[in-house]
Amino acid sequence: MSSADAADVFHLDGHDVPFTTGETVLAATSRAGRYIPHLCWHPDFAPHGSCRVCTVRVGARLVPACTLPAATGLVVESDTAELRHLRLRLLQLLFVEGNHFCPSCEKSGDCQLQATAYAVDMTGPHFEEFYPARPVDASHPDILLDLNRCILCSLCVRASREVDGKSVFALGGHGIDTHLLIDSPSGRLVDTDFAPTDRAASICPVGVILPKRRGFAVPIGERRFDQQPISAAEEGDP
């Protein structure tokens, strides 16, 4: 950071965070090695602003840090009792909306939803469970798709479209019935050109898109977010 850029800082919970022109608060925070909880944001993709977990306070306003343009002198609060509670409730909404049975999920320990819930001390769902009927698509020879765990972050939609150039996924429906769509006449993954090497195959923050024939390669208890809290973990894919 040159001295000319040194003026370009905003304040996050009392710390100066440098940023470059056009950067959002979350992107700059993440680059600076600080942590604001988030799920639908990924450093490689344009912000989406849908999960709202990165909501921060700027003066009287609550805004998602992922879409908030950084500005010199901006005072951003993130690690406050108010926002920790807000994030806790948002995560609980995501948990009750889907079918999140961590003990039987291969992603457990590597899952961003779970690790973020740990980070906000979520011990229970608080709300009532929806137990939606959602499909599992095991049609693809190499990939399992378990939509019970989908949190509609659309990272796979974006990765498949923008990196893989395939647009294998899209969002369908509306309201509480919003769901992931597969781009094939049958609506099944086997009838797409999806490949395990696709960017979209490794971007899912939860346990929806999983490689087949790989289970417990790393034992439960020794996985990524078992080793260290998500706030201390490197940004990026599991």
């Binding site: 849908s50 909404l93 995501l94 309201g175 919003t178």
Partner: peptide
């Protein structure tokens, strides 16, 4: 409101459904 929620953001998608319940 629950009927008309677009489903994009977590609080509205799930929260309006919970309000209805």
């Amino acid at each position: 409101f629950a009927h008309e929620s677009c489903g994009f953001c977590t609080p509205c998608r799930v929260g309006t459904a919970l309000l209805v319940r």
